[in-house]
Design a protein around this nucleic acid. Sequence first.
DNA 1: CCTTTAAATTGATAAATGTCAAGAAACCAT
DNA 2: ATGGTTTCTTGACATTTATCAATTTAAAGG
Lengths: 193, 193
Amino acid sequence: MFEQIKEYYKNLLPGMKEVEWDALEQKLTVQHLKKGEFLTQTGEICNQVSFINKGLLRLFYLVDGKEICTGFVAENEYAAQYDSFLTQQPAFSSIDALEDCELINLSCDDMHSLYSSHPVFERAGRKIAETLFIMISSQTTRLLTMTPEERYQSVLQDQPFIIQRVPQYMIATLIGISPEHLSRIRKKMTGKK
Amino acid sequence: MFEQIKEYYKNLLPGMKEVEWDALEQKLTVQHLKKGEFLTQTGEICNQVSFINKGLLRLFYLVDGKEICTGFVAENEYAAQYDSFLTQQPAFSSIDALEDCELINLSCDDMHSLYSSHPVFERAGRKIAETLFIMISSQTTRLLTMTPEERYQSVLQDQPFIIQRVPQYMIATLIGISPEHLSRIRKKMTGKK
DNA sequence: CCTTTAAATTGATAAATGTCAAGAAACCAT
DNA sequence: ATGGTTTCTTGACATTTATCAATTTAAAGG
């Protein structure tokens, strides 16, 4: 059950000792989510982070009755309403499952007690936050500096799993355009090649 | 010289001991930058983070001969080509001074040696990364879920120092529109009130 | 395999936004 | 002050993109 996440932490913290892993493992809980079910809802305060053993999650906002996706997370990555988790303020966005999921959860309280009891996890938290920063930062850069077509190709290149596993109309909102427009861009792209 | 940054760290790390601060202080260096000068250039690998004692920095991309701003940082915050700093890959963006600046620098190597010698700084690094994540994440959300007018008002509300100290045509690129369009939006806004 | 639902495409049109050029206003340095 | 530079505004027009509705295509469940 915990092989994948153990591998993840061993990779993140080359110096992690077995006793440290044991302390972490004790705090982990498993959750199953069926396609379409919600992990978190708008207005809730996110009090856990979820490592994805299997499946695919979507982060999205509901704006004027329309769903706008801000990210997709798949196997061997952490997903969370991370800003709500950090600030302990109600989230404005939601997370649901695009595929059946198996998640390994760690609560906010448990994480902080791990920070205190085993400082090596401060480093893990730092690295995870840094990685998330790099990802979201490149997303902002894409939105500000690229045309819609370039943004699509950037997703195609950097996160191909999204193209393969996420409906196109959701990808459209991720790159900031309408589904119809993305369809036309794709049509034009095949012509060019 | 180091009062402000010491205050910053004391606030960030309530449990920080004097000996830890001393270790950090030894690594700090001061840099002055005049308005218009560059802190980092495209293509360089960022090997330091800069705490701003005084002044205002701009992060921006050069795309097709046009400058597109992705962020502004002022007093008592850290600025860096943070993704380049973390990945040690060449930066695609640049940083320059919009006002005369006094910066307190910490090099990448020194930071990592501090992480090892005084683990409390892992926590500082984590918190800084988390804060940066929250900021950039709200920037992405703005771009995806709000109209240009709403984005401008959001900057007005959340980062008023930008409105006061940054030329309007730069703010326009920060929220993803042309300077002319922002001018018209502002005109329309004053009418509404 | 068939039926139903979800997703993608297409066309016509409207709305939003960008571009270019000119002029006005604000700001700086001498 | 005043001349020069930077920034902001405005108008006319072009381009991009969104919207709406209809249709086709693909996927999913029984």
